[in-house]
Design a protein around this nucleic acid. Structure first.
Lengths: 156, 156
DNA sequence: GGCGTTATACTCGGATACCACGTGTCCGAGTACCCCCGG
DNA sequence: CCGGGGGTACTCGGACACGTGGTATCCGAGTATAACGCC
């Protein structure tokens, strides 16, 4: 029960892109910015493109940029894009299997365990869906966005 | 980001044990009761013993039994025992690494991303900690506890 | 000087090895029970 | 008939293969740019 190691990289990468205000940055730039393998970061950012959180453009001066304003991108969007949106708990209805299997006519109500596990998972998702990238930007230390822009901006 | 397949088996196994009211059942019995591999279930139940949720006795008429009354066993106890209690999200402080690393004197406040991820995880844990095995028993269909006792009880 | 063409360098995108965790299985150590024997 | 001892069968507990998902990496397809030559 843990998120992939790459989730942290991607969260920070999106934060950096948000500081650029719609400008693009290449995977190589972002990787160098955080000291992570470039090819690996690129692979993860692709899943964000598929999820519609980022857009990608090829060629010189290309790269990744936000597909939505930061206020509309929630942490849940990013986490689900990178780590998958499958439910944590999969109910296989084993209550109906084996020697003690409950006859299906008594299983009209969903399995109580599955209901509780789903509720906990919903609480997690709701918490992540309540925080946006804009909230993260607002909590950065003073002067960091300007510094990020200076480091990542590409002079024409 | 998903729980192990075995979590479901273990949750149901504990539910079955709770229906026995402190009586013991062997791993083999429980496995047959749910149609799952016996050796595998036994392996998982061991981690519950280590976590103090169950007690185990060897020898004939031995097996596993609850170490606490069902009202005191929460779903979080079980899930953490089986799946580990590690945090989902591990903050490696990559904000301090690489070319854009933030100097440590500006990192007195914890990383905002880590704070949000931890909050979501806390919501998940709180939801699971609010549900006990006794709640699960109360939501079972009519007559199931009696049936489980009849199937799992071992005549002296 | 302005425009079209060409060459270039840079970007993403998917396909490919490597490794760790979880799944599934097995056999050995220990113990409570049951049977048998002796008193 | 009662008590003790030994054998037995049953239980958990940890050690051992196997497979899948994630990590890390590479090279190829495509494009905007920039330079160059021509008009």
């Amino acid at each position: 029960m843990k998120l992939g190691e790459s989730t942290e990289c991607v969260l920070h990468a999106v934060t950096a892109l948000a500081q650029l205000g719609g400008e693009a940055a290449s995977a190589g730039q972002l990787a160098e910015h955080y000291g992570v393998p470039a090819a690996y970061l690129a692979k993860q950012l692709q899943s964000l493109v598929r999820a519609g959180v980022l857009t990608a453009t090829t060629g010189p001066r290309g790269g990744f940029r936000l597909a939505m304003p930061p206020e509309r991108i929630t942490l849940l969007h990013i986490v689900e894009a990178v780590d998958g949106a499958l439910p944590f708990y999969k109910c296989n209805e084993i209550r109906q299997n084996g020697r003690g299997g409950i006859p299906s006519e008594q299983c009209l109500a969903p399995c109580g365990l599955a209901v509780r596990m789903a509720a906990a998972e919903a609480a997690w998702r709701a918490s992540l869906a309540g925080e946006t990238v804009a909230d993260i930007l607002a909590s950065l230390p003073e002067g960091i966005p300007e510094r990020t822009r200076a480091l990542l901006a590409r002079e024409r």
